[in-house]
Design a binder for these strands. Structure first.
Length: 480
RNA sequence: GUCCCCAUCGUCUAGUCCGGUCCAGGACACCGCCCUUUCACGGCGGUAACACGAGUUCAAAUCUCGUUGGGGACGCCA
């Protein structure tokens, strides 16, 4: 099984699961599932200072939430140090790498000097030119040393599934460090060693890694190893065409979860951002995505992350969702807003299902259920100022509301049809448009001017509550 | 400063490999109409793009070159 598809997602635990990383995870996962391959999770935590174990659990949680199950791992680079040492040793023995005794301070100074003169800096190979005597002397003094790869002359090229043939002159590259003076590997080296050891068949990652890939190809060559296939995917950008960052809105996948987006929407949306199935489909099930996904269909230009389209898609999914399942997803949001108690969640399930049905066509996110329908859960709602001046514009309105309250108090069966009958009849008697009364009642009982059909709302509120609310409004109008 | 990549409606894209079927198709957003007590949903319709300039060709969104614009990378970060 040498041609088994094995892909990986390799987040670094220096932050939450970024949407960009999540998109890469989605593409890798879809590619693995499409080809009946393996999806491997590897945590790139060689930078101890910037790695946080707590972040690891958030990343795992985020991947699970998205439903991107992995077949192997998580592997931790911090626990694989012997591999990196072993491979570095091989390169050293074959003279493909050499020790560098330069201090980071010296290198930084040289780099800055070069920048000041506006010249391109590559490592000047100071330590490659060291004589045996000089080396012995440095060794005797126990000078810290890093390991650098030796970049040969020539050019390096590789075939990218998305970008086709990519090449670069080796002189543009420098002898980069592969092992730090404390023996920890650098990113490019650890990445190659692990991809090799894990028998990764396809490296699918962001196009910001193209420059790294040249270095990695050189590493594979130096090791005499066979290379995986590469596919660099375009990067999602924020609306201003810059990289998505915290300042520009939600970056962590958990932020989207907390804002009320469905995991299947995130997967669907992330999948079709930068990739298209080539037909007119956009909303696709997980199975359809797996079935149609291919790296050949990935575009080369960086797509902008379109929040409005994400919201639209979330709304589409919500509308298509089964009410029972939807309710279970919404309940946590109701808790968070303190709209219901555990007890109510159990006992008022039927009522909550009706409420869900009413707001289903109006919500773009799960969170909106808790926001738009808030007035159903609390008596402590405010009247929209604009609607007040438009609808509660005379004392007459208070009289009409009182009359309506009287009418409904005599209703035995507080069902929407009956309520509607009562209201229309009253409007006729008062010689006003039913709409006029409807708007007044809506504002009185909900505090807002729009929303689901009024009679459904009233039925849901119940007779006593509606009457109480009308009284509240009447008092409000009278004291204006 | 050096290098790499990209370029179709405001946004995501189809078409580009294998030039003619494209006075460029779909979706989001926007606008209008219908439905309607409202807000939505839904239905119908509309505005809107081949970055620019050369070249090749009977014919170019599609091929070539240049310009411009955008993105990315240049660490003992990942």
């Amino acid at each position: 099984m040498n041609n088994e598809v094995r892909v990986r997602i390799a987040p670094s635990p220096s932050g939450y699961l970024h949407v960009g990383t999540a998109r890469m995870a989605v593409c890798n996962w879809l590619f693995a599932r499409h080809n009946q391959g393996k999806f491997i999770l590897r945590i790139e935590d060689t930078d101890i200072a910037r790695s946080d174990p707590q972040m690891v659990s958030i990343i795992l949680e985020s991947l699970k939430w998205l439903g991107l199950d992995w077949d192997e791992g998580p592997y931790y680079q911090s626990q694989r140090m012997e591999f990196y040492k072993k491979y570095a040793q091989i390169l050293l023995e074959r003279n493909k790498a050499y020790y560098c005794y330069c201090t980071p301070e010296t290198l930084k100074r040289k780099r800055e000097e070069a920048a000041a003169k506006k010249i391109n800096w590559v490592y000047d190979r100071t330590c490659l030119k060291l004589s045996e005597q000089e080396k012995a002397e440095l060794e005797r003094k126990n000078t810290p040393k890093a390991v650098r790869i030796f970049i040969p002359e020539g050019k390096t090229s590789f075939y990218d599934i998305v970008y086709k043939e990519l090449k670069k002159e080796n002189k543009e590259l420098d002898d980069f460090v592969i092992l730090r003076s404390d023996f920890r590997p650098t990113y490019n080296f650890a990445c190659v060693v692990d991809d090799l050891e894990m028998r990764i068949s396809h490296v699918i990652r962001g196009n910001d890694h193209i420059a790294n890939t040249f270095k990695q190809v050189l590493l594979y060559r130096a090791l005499g190893a066979e290379m995986p296939s590469f596919a660099h995917l375009p990067l999602n950008l924020a609306m201003d065409r810059q990289k998505i960052s915290k300042r520009k809105g939600a970056v962590a996948i958990t932020d989207y979860r907390d804002a009320g987006f469905l995991p299947e929407v995130m997967v669907n949306f992330l999948a079709i951002s930068g990739w298209s199935p080539k037909d007119e489909r956009e909303i696709m099930t997980r199975e359809e995505l797996i079935q149609s996904f291919s790296l050949e269909g990935v575009s080369q230009a960086n797509p902008i992350f379109d929040m409005q389209k994400l919201e639209w898609m979330n709304g589409e999914y919500i509308r298509a969702y089964d009410n029972e399942k939807l309710l279970d997803l919404i309940i946590p949001f109701l808790f968070k807003e303190n709209l219901i108690t555990e007890d109510m969640a159990k006992k008022k399930r039927e009522w909550l299902l009706k409420y869900i049905q009413l707001f289903k066509e109006r919500a773009k996110t799960l969170k909106e259920f808790a926001e738009k329908g808030k007035y159903l859960f609390t008596f402590d709602y405010q009247y929209e100022p604009k609607a007040v001046s438009k609808t509660f514009n005379s004392i007459e309105v208070a009289d009409r509301l009182n009359k309506f309250a009287e009418r409904i108090s005599s209703l035995d069966d507080f069902k929407k049809e009956k309520i509607e009958d009562a209201l229309r009849k009253l409007a006729e008697e008062l010689k006003i448009e039913p709409a006029q009364l409807i708007h007044a009642v809506r504002l009185a009982t909900t505090g807002v001017s729009g929303g689901p059909p009024l009679f459904d709302i009233l039925e849901l509120l119940g007779k006593e509550e509606v009457i109480k609310r009308i009284q509240k409004a009447v008092e409000f109008i009278q004291t204006r």
